[in-house]
């Protein structure tokens, strides 16, 4: 127990680091994922190809390789930013591919007749999209997006191993201070559980409020 109480500030910094990384990377992933999903369903061929390539490549890239390339590679182009920004970039881009697929399959669950009916009522494209198609798609994408964001929170541990201030990274300092290593990891695990369970609870609440009635 005293591993936690003695090093509360170290754990707190790591916990907040993970949280910060998760939140920013989630926002980036959601924005990019939405953009890529709209590319993938666009009636313009080159955008569709770009979206498909983005998703196929990123889904099959090991995240460690992506971190390796972004954190150590981008500075070679003279782009010097804090490590945390690079970590958000890598995590966000990687997760955006999964978000994109979740959103796209959500849009595909909306029956064709819904769009046809909206158009036959004289709705413009924008109206049909915002009033008919997206609200229905939104309902069915809540669970997959939730599990993708949980995966993102767990993947942020990789940033810790690349010496970004993060929960997993705290083990190094505590190990050097000579604390019991097993308990150190127990509290790290608890920290991750708190974050993933919080995301899970948030999305359960969203699902109860707006999800598809089953």
């Amino acid at each position: 127990m005293n591993v936690l109480t003695d090093n509360f500030s170290a754990y707190g910094a790591g916990f907040l680091g993970t949280l910060e990384l998760t939140v920013y990377a989630s926002l980036l992933a959601l924005a990019l994922g939405f953009l890529m999903a709209s590319f993938r369903v666009a009636p313009v061929g080159s955008l569709r190809i770009f979206g498909t390539a983005w998703v196929t490549v990123l889904r099959n890239t090991p995240l460690t390789l992506l971190f390796f390339a972004v954190l150590l590679g981008l500075p070679r182009f003279g782009l010097v930013l804090p490590f945390k920004v690079f970590a958000v970039l890598a995590l966000g881009c990687y997760t955006s591919a999964f978000i994109c697929e979740a959103l796209r399959s959500g849009i595909n669950t909306v029956p064709r007749g819904q769009g046809e009916a909206a158009r036959s009522l004289g709705m413009t494209f924008g109206q049909a999209l915002s009033l008919v198609v997206l609200p229905q798609a939104f309902r069915s994408v809540i669970p997959p997006v939730g599990s993708t964001l949980i995966a993102l929170a767990k993947n942020s541990a990789i940033a810790g191993a690349f010496s970004v201030t993060e929960l997993l990274g705290t083990y190094k300092t505590l190990n050097e201070l000579g604390y019991n290593i097993v308990w150190t990891f127990v509290w790290i695990a608890v920290g991750y559980l708190i974050i993933t369970l919080a995301i899970s609870a948030l999305f359960h609440a969203l699902e109860r409020r707006w999800g598809v009635a089953r």
Partner: peptide, 15 residues
């Protein structure tokens, strides 16, 4: 399933 893989790998490796 709830634990990050990397935390488990580090635990096994370090601890």
């Amino acid at each position: 399933r709830a634990m990050p893989v990397l935390v488990m790998i580090f635990f096994i490796f370090v601890a």
